[in-house]
Amino acid sequence: MAKGVKPRVKVPKTAQAGGTITIKTLISHKMESGQRKDKEGNIIPRSIINRFTCDFNGQNVIDVTLEPAISTNPFIEFEATVPEAGDFAFTWYDDDGSVYEESKSIAIA
């Protein structure tokens, strides 16, 4: 597991039934591109978050393939429809096989 990886998500606590909300996500990760060299001139191996998904009550909202050109601490913002109360599940997939998960509940206002 890469060091110091911490997922953060920002989801409103409530929404209108069928309403639209904005979700922001950020995960602390160095996103080593595989293009850099260390002091001895050896290539530092690629180590990135390569995929991010967001689902709500088992249905997909967004599924993102990330490449090394995504900045350190990957930030992704998007909009979701909230048909009913339930849970958002966020998943980040690391090159090293680690999977980081976060979830947020939302109520209908």
Partner: peptide
């Protein structure tokens, strides 16, 4: 850079 796939609940 990235590919975004939008699911049924993407607003």
């Amino acid at each position: 850079v990235a590919t975004f796939k939008f699911g049924p609940l993407a607003a």
